[in-house]
Design a protein around this nucleic acid. Sequence first.
DNA 1: TTGAAAGCGATACCAG
DNA 2: CTGGTATCGCTTTCAA
Lengths: 347, 347
Amino acid sequence: MVQISKPQSARTSRESAAPSPAPTSADVARLAGVSRATVSYVLNNTSAVRISEPTRRRVHEAAKELGYVPHAAARSLRAGHTRIVLMPSPSVPAGPLYNAFFNDLQWALSRLDYTVVQYGSVSLRGDDAARAWAELRPVAVLTPPDLGAEGVEVLRRSGARAVITLGPERAEGAHALLMDHREVGRSAGAHLVERGRRRIGVVLPTEHGLDHFARPRLDGVRDAVLGTGAEVFELPLTYDEESAGQLVPEIVELGLDAVFAYNDEYAMLLMRALQDAGVGIPEETAVVGADDLMLGRLLRPRLSTVRIELPSGQELAALVDRLVRAPGAVTESHDMLRARVVARESS
Amino acid sequence: MVQISKPQSARTSRESAAPSPAPTSADVARLAGVSRATVSYVLNNTSAVRISEPTRRRVHEAAKELGYVPHAAARSLRAGHTRIVLMPSPSVPAGPLYNAFFNDLQWALSRLDYTVVQYGSVSLRGDDAARAWAELRPVAVLTPPDLGAEGVEVLRRSGARAVITLGPERAEGAHALLMDHREVGRSAGAHLVERGRRRIGVVLPTEHGLDHFARPRLDGVRDAVLGTGAEVFELPLTYDEESAGQLVPEIVELGLDAVFAYNDEYAMLLMRALQDAGVGIPEETAVVGADDLMLGRLLRPRLSTVRIELPSGQELAALVDRLVRAPGAVTESHDMLRARVVARESS
DNA sequence: TTGAAAGCGATACCAG
DNA sequence: CTGGTATCGCTTTCAA
């Protein structure tokens, strides 16, 4: 399929014509009449060496003329390291909270001259995923803690200066940012007990992947009621109206006087169903959500919620940078998840 | 900073001990007692050459023993191309619709053995961003159409076999997937006019970046009312209760009998404010959202909405793959955005 | 101030 | 069937 190229117009526009190979630094050097070394010096502003101003200009002009773009792979091969920060893309559809966090983080890392790569680890788990990730030779990895010591080791040996886990557990050898969702449940539970509630339902979303968060939240509620005489009941719920409708009679029969609804969206779903069935909120049954979404403020009664504070993207980016620069640095782990009840009208 | 390594335990676990360089194929070759070439053949299952079974085993064992992981940069340098599909990370916090779409796409591309890279193009626009992207030599680029012919050309010359824009416009030289949000406004407008509404407000979020979507939606409503005698009014709204509260008297004074609220979340915000002020929905003022979120179904009255259908991730992934394989293929552009009103109780 | 050349890690040709 | 070896594009000593 040969294409006859139209006579070239005045400007160097070739449109979709020539699949000519990308220009290399050698091409630039040739056009500028200098050596490849000089091109490299000029384009990287190497301070260890002085290049005359005329030469600099010639190189820059040649580069622009050819539309030269350096080859990242070649560069990092030579350099022996990359500026890639790798994160597996979340396996569960992420909520607005995580999204804001991720955007923040990405923005902050870009400012520090890192390239964020979201790796879609389809059907790879733990150490297998780690091996796939290691092919990119990332300088840092941010991952959930479903990673064995071996996986961490593979990453480390492949050049990762920072392996950071975000989640409830820690992984051997990695820097753990503990984010234990039990704290969320604990806050909600303590709040409800304080308000005199004694029969507390806890929503467990049936959606796949959410139980990583839901279980700890449930456990947190259990922690909170310990020794108070209050009881905890598990309430499986799928995110649709039908499931919510089925749950209501169960709640009534159990005589629950409070529900911690996993998050604000499930809370809204459940509140609607309860109200449609004539259950008084909060008189008969209190409802508490989590995530402090705007929508909670718009409900009537206004939804009480647990506000979760993740580390800011900037903080985390700074940590990554620190770990990258100081290899032997802290492997200690902080607890990064703060939870605080915002009491409104539904409890 | 020399580290004395502890005597190695029975297993090869070194934990966080040795920052030894990553093993290369040469190391594997040495340990297996073969040449680097042979290692490459074995590990890539090269069919053009037969390697004896004992040799294969030795190579595999050596690789596992050393924890060998191939170096992606070296490979793609040699190969002359990558399997990277590059997308700039969205500049506005993405909604659930986009997120679902993105997850889908990523999943589908992973299945086709592509690596998705989200590039945080902080403060780089258009052709400058394109130059930065080109450094990674992506085989495909998916981007909003804020990209000049020059940017496309740079990407093409750097090896991108598919440059696909997603958005309302087209970019010279790129394969355009037109997604014109006017269609959303048009659906909503037509629906409201049909129901006899004549004074239609259109919410314009003041949030930065959202007017890329809001403007076309407004224009769409204008299209729809053309020649019907209905009037359109712009309603700037910030996503908080205060702003919504201020908007209500304006709506009343203007005597609006309908509002297209940009999307379901803004619709919910506005509905709440209207109801708190005693405005009857839909009797006095109809409200229509967009995106068909679950929460719309939970409102009372149930929220009418415009359901938007993006191309599925699978479809788009398939398109990418087709374009990558058949370089001279279609540069024609489809219109990929479908919008359909879901009439419920609020209109 | 500039140029020549080594080498990063993996692959594919061509001999043996 | 297996082993040298040139090569991809770039950076960085070392010489001139």
